[in-house]
Each structure stands twice: as structure tokens, then as C-alpha cells.
């Protein structure tokens, strides 16, 4: 079987994001860009499923401008077999992304689509679930463990109440949470090898997908800052101030 993995190019998680003073967005010029960390976990999981003998091919895809090729090459260096770049300079929101992924899934017929649970730029946490809905496939979101047995996947999910386990028939959409695995480091020879792996470019129009009704961003602002408070010198002083505020009795 095939596994399709979606990845997104985002501002690197170590960058302290700055809001532009004119409210038009955040500063992206000259800022380090990387693969969304949850997507890296999704790639790693797909590779492990393949290495365990449950899949023959891992296909990686991204939607975005030319520069996103960099993230596809990273995924290929990690071990993905081939890449599909859905090339667009337009901003693509989750519902449109899900439509694009569905079109790719219709074409490639993967048994599993693996995505990160959310991208750390817009923090929407929507695309995997939307793809599940559009494809009428089961969804196993926020996965911390995936076991494949024949045509089913048993997935442990990180939920507020603890760890929930569900079993889903394949094909299915799985979204990766933080503790699913630790992605491998890419070695130099693999980076060289990745340059020769196939990378196909398609347009949104090629896939016959129309843009969905979109949410309009009116402005972007810096969040209200918490003021640093005071240092207390002792437990006695701490207890006194907390009692004064009525927080402890």
C-alpha cells in the first residue's frame, strides 16, 4: 500500500515571531523557514510503517510557492520515495487544502494519509479532519501510537481525558501528535540521494480543485503582554501576598 504525507513550510519553531507594526501580518522576510514539526513526525511515522513492511511507497506532498521544494527535499532525504508539489502562490486555507489532498488521494489511492495535527503558523488544526469528511474516511487525530494490522489501524490518541484508543478501517486519515515518534536526523549522503528522487509539480487547476469560501484576515496584532510581577524573598512573604489577594486561606 501507499502512504501519502502532507507537509507545510512554516516559520521555524525556534524563531520568535514578530508582528508587523502595520498589522498586515508577521515578519517573514529573512526569517528561517522549516518543515512544520508535526509534519516531520508524520513523515517519520510513514517511514516506520513502510520499514515494518506494511507499505511499499511513501509519497510526500506540499501546497505552496516554489520555495516549499526545500521541505519536500527534506522529506525525500528522510526517506520518502517521491514528491508532489502543488505549486501556488495563493494563500491556501484548510478547506481548500483538504480538497487538494482529496484530489491527490483520489489519484494516488493511498491507504493512509498522514498529516501533522496542526501547523504551527495558523494553528488551525483542521485539515486532517476536513479531508476525513470530504473522503468519507475514518479519522484518527492526535495520534501517539499507530499499529497497522491488515486493513485496520489501531490508533492511540492524545485526548484531554488521557489516551483514547480507536480502531479504524483503511483507508484512513491519521494526524500526528507530538509523542508519536522522534523524527530521524538526515545524513548528508541521503540529502545527495534525495536530489535524484522524483519530484512532480502540479497546479491546483490541474487537480480540478476550486478554492473554498475563505476566512478573511482583517488584521494581525501583538497579544496583550503580561507584566512581570515582583520577586518575593521567602515562603512567608509569598503566603502573605496570596492571602491578601484571597487566593489561599
Amino acid at each position: 500500500m501507499k502512504i501519502l504525507v502532507g507537509v507545510k513550510r512554516v516559520i521555524d519553531f525556534n524563531v520568535r515571531v514578530q508582528v508587523k507594526p502595520d498589522g498586515s501580518g508577521v515578519v517573514k522576510d529573512g526569517v528561517k523557514m522549516s518543515m512544520n514539526p508535526f509534519d516531520e513526525i508524520a513523515i517519520e511515522e510513514a517511514l516506520r510503517i513502510k520499514e515494518a513492511g506494511h507499505a511499499e511507497e511513501v509519497i510526500v506532498t506540499t501546497i505552496g510557492p516554489k520555495a516549499c521544494q526545500e521541505q519536500l527535499r527534506t522529506a525525500l532525504a528522510m526517506g520518502a520515495d517521491r514528491a508532489i508539489h502543488v505549486l501556488t502562490d495563493d494563500e491556501v486555507q484548510p478547506l481548500t487544502a483538504a480538497r487538494i489532498l482529496k484530489a491527490l488521494a483520489d489519484k494516488e489511492q493511498p491507504k493512509i494519509v498522514l498529516l501533522g495535527k496542526q501547523a504551527i503558523d495558523d494553528d488551525n488544526n483542521q485539515t486532517a479532519q476536513m479531508l476525513g469528511a470530504l473522503s468519507h474516511w475514518p479519522q484518527a487525530t492526535f495520534a501517539s501510537e499507530v499499529k497497522i494490522e491488515g486493513d485496520t489501524a489501531t490508533v492511540t490518541r492524545e485526548v484531554d481525558a488521557g489516551l483514547e484508543t480507536i480502531s479504524v478501517d483503511l483507508p484512513a486519515v491519521i494526524s500526528a501528535d507530538l509523542r508519536l515518534n522522534e523524527p530521524r536526523y538526515v545524513k548528508l549522503p541521503d540529502i545527495m540521494k534525495a536530489k535524484r528522487k522524483p519530484l512532480e509539480t502540479v497546479s491546483i487547476e490541474d487537480l480540478g480543485v476550486g478554492h473554498a469560501a475563505a476566512v478573511k484576515v482583517l488584521k494581525t496584532t501583538a497579544p496583550a503582554k503580561r507584566q512581570a510581577g515582583i520577586k518575593v524573598e521567602s515562603v512567608t512573604e509569598l503566603v502573605t501576598v496570596l492571602k491578601e489577594k484571597g487566593l489561599i486561606s
Binding site: P94, N124, N125, Q129, A133, T141, F142, R157, V159, D160
Partner: peptide, 23 residues
């Protein structure tokens, strides 16, 4: 916007062809 709502609502939104406002 708990894991319950995060899991559920995009599935509702996509079926209805609507974008979702998260959080």
C-alpha cells in the same frame, strides 16, 4: 476548542462546505 471539539468541528465544517474559525 478541547480535543473533543478540535476533532469534531472541522469534520462538520467540511461536510457543509464551510471554513472553520478555530480557537
Amino acid at each position: 476548542s478541547t480535543t473533543f471539539g478540535k476533532d469534531l468541528m472541522p469534520r462538520v465544517a467540511a461536510h457543509l462546505g464551510r471554513p472553520q474559525i478555530s480557537d
